[in-house]
Design a protein around this nucleic acid. Structure first.
Lengths: 236, 236
DNA sequence: CAAGCCCAACTGGCATGTCAGATAGATTTT
DNA sequence: AAAATCTATCTGACATGCCAGTTGGGCTTG
């Protein structure tokens, strides 16, 4: 391999207004991920470049790019010369996921309790919690799942750490399907999430970082149990 | 967009012996990342699909795939219709990196202290620490950087959490260049890393999770300071 | 001389075609 | 009947070519 002759920047690209996603590969990625997350494409479903290219009325190239990204994010598996299969999370991955989340979220709530939240931040949390209460009363599992995600995301956003946000957002997307399946079947757990959230926020407001972290740890442990034993209450 | 007619798995790909990386896109990815990590391609360096394809004697296709992966991992920036530029970590990213690492590594050492390490694990840590001492005496910055990475990686591996390993490995690769630049200039910090590692391991062996986590927090705080103020001792 | 313009030379984005590897079912062989 | 083989037809991997958007330098124009 020849040496790179003049690799240094001789021309800096200008940052122009990038619409964000009128690229076909972005469209393919978004569409496929949405179908996977909503369960439209169940784990084990078989995909091929040409097939998806036909659905989306584009060529193989952007579909391939979308596949590679989805694979790197853990949603699918590409087997060379064989095909693409929608992945599911293994038990070990779910357990690892919650351990990782526990480490990060306990850290976050501990910090947030120390450095008191301002009025605007508290308003956002309170608004979210009130909406959760409504979702419980109305029995809307979908709303509760969405609000749960927004709740945890709010806490991370308040830390102002972009790397943390990136990691957590990616993890949330991966576990979402499992949450939906488990929570739809387990109405009991569905109702206990909200009070746990409320108690965590209460501890944060009180400035008790130790307690907030401890409560968050229990909250996530409960969540893990629900996801790892999804068929228990389904049979009752 | 038409509905997916029959997406369910009708044919499961067989797992065959995949060599791992005789794919051209893997070669391109590996080669480019190596050049970026070693500093051969400095931040700001300009790349193009055709240029790199020429270096590596392949077509644009696998190079493009490598670019997209490197972009998702934060090593480069792809500007549509403009080009590819090797990225550097901003001050904010470095700070966020260390905060995230602190959350994870303090958690890890705390856990490891509680569940005592077995003899084999202690042997690996001791071996690594002894090698660090040698590196210090010999003044080999490169060896110390390598051993430092292996040290932290050992701790994560002992947790047995694949997700944790993945996140940390990716983060380590991103920060590596900054560490190399900073540590090469700051010989003072270079010498203080080893005793900090030693004290952390001592706390773990003693079963004192609180102390281990606290020491790890200080260790990372020192590291952050070194990386964020690289020119201080460079002038002395 | 300065400001505006224009054009040639890049860039990545995508469509398309070719190819080797893998699969499944029919066929042949034992 | 069972085992081996052949073959049609899938798959992704890669090469190539065309296109629009971007850029920077030279030209035109004031």
């Amino acid at each position: 391999m020849p040496a790179p002759e003049s690799t240094h920047a001789t021309r800096q690209p200008h940052r122009t207004a990038e619409g964000g996603g009128n690229l076909l590969r972005i469209k393919a990625y978004t569409e496929l991920k949405a179908r996977i997350l909503t369960g439209d494409l169940e784990p084990g479903a078989f995909l091929s470049e040409r097939q998806v290219a036909g659905w989306l009325a584009m060529s193989k190239t952007p579909v391939r790019a979308a596949f590679e990204r989805l694979e790197s994010e853990g949603f699918i598996t590409i087997s060379p010369q064989q095909g693409v299969v929608v992945r599911d999370l293994s038990v070990a991955e779910i357990a690892d996921h919650f351990e990782l989340r526990a480490a990060l979220e306990c850290f976050v709530v501990g910090r947030l309790a120390d450095s008191k939240l301002d009025a605007a931040q508290r308003a956002l949390l309170d608004e979210n919690l009130d909406a959760q209460q409504v979702a419980i009363e109305e029995g809307s599992v979908q709303d509760q799942i969405r609000l749960d995600g927004e709740f945890h995301q709010l806490l991370f956003r308040f830390m102002g750490n972009a790397e943390l946000m990136r990691v957590m957002t990616q993890m949330r997307e991966r576990i979402l399907r499992v949450i939906q399946r488990a929570l739809t079947r387990n109405r009991e757990r569905f109702r206990t999430i909200y009070p746990e959230h409320r108690s965590i926020v209460k501890a944060i407001y009180a400035g008790d970082g130790k307690l907030a972290a401890q409560l968050m740890g229990l909250h996530l442990e409960n969540g893990k149990q629900t996801l790892l034993l999804p068929s228990r209450t389904a049979a009752l």
